[in-house]
């Protein structure tokens, strides 16, 4: 019973996180300006990281946690690089 509830709620949580990723993708595709797209990207990678953590709970391994940590690290670097580009790319103009 308990494992059934856990499996069901994990599936539901993955569905909800997938919906959240869809919302972020909508903002990436539709964002009026570049900074909106970068915020959407930020949300997208955080949600992907949470999705990987839920996969790790579902399969009972710690490998997915390391993948989630990697995604968080690289996503942070990517967002900072994009923000820096938005700051400096227009100094030249």
């Amino acid at each position: 019973m308990s494992t059934l509830v856990l499996a069901w709620s994990l599936t539901a949580a993955q569905f909800l996180l997938g919906l959240a990723m869809l919302c972020a993708t909508f903002r990436i595709l539709r964002g009026p300006r570049a900074q909106d797209r970068v915020v959407g990207f930020d949300t997208l990678y955080v949600t992907a990281m949470l999705l990987l953590v839920t996969f790790g709970i579902g399969l009972g391994t710690a490998i997915y946690f390391e993948a989630a940590l990697l995604i968080a690290l690289l996503g942070f670097v990517g967002t900072v690089a994009l923000a820096k580009f938005l700051l400096r790319g227009e100094v030249i103009e």
Binding site: A12, A13, L16, L17, A20, V46
Partner: peptide, 13 residues
């Protein structure tokens, strides 16, 4: 897990 996923969905919405 359900609470965290719901909160994240609210944020993305």
């Amino acid at each position: 897990v359900l609470l965290g996923a719901t909160i994240t969905l609210i944020g993305a919405f």
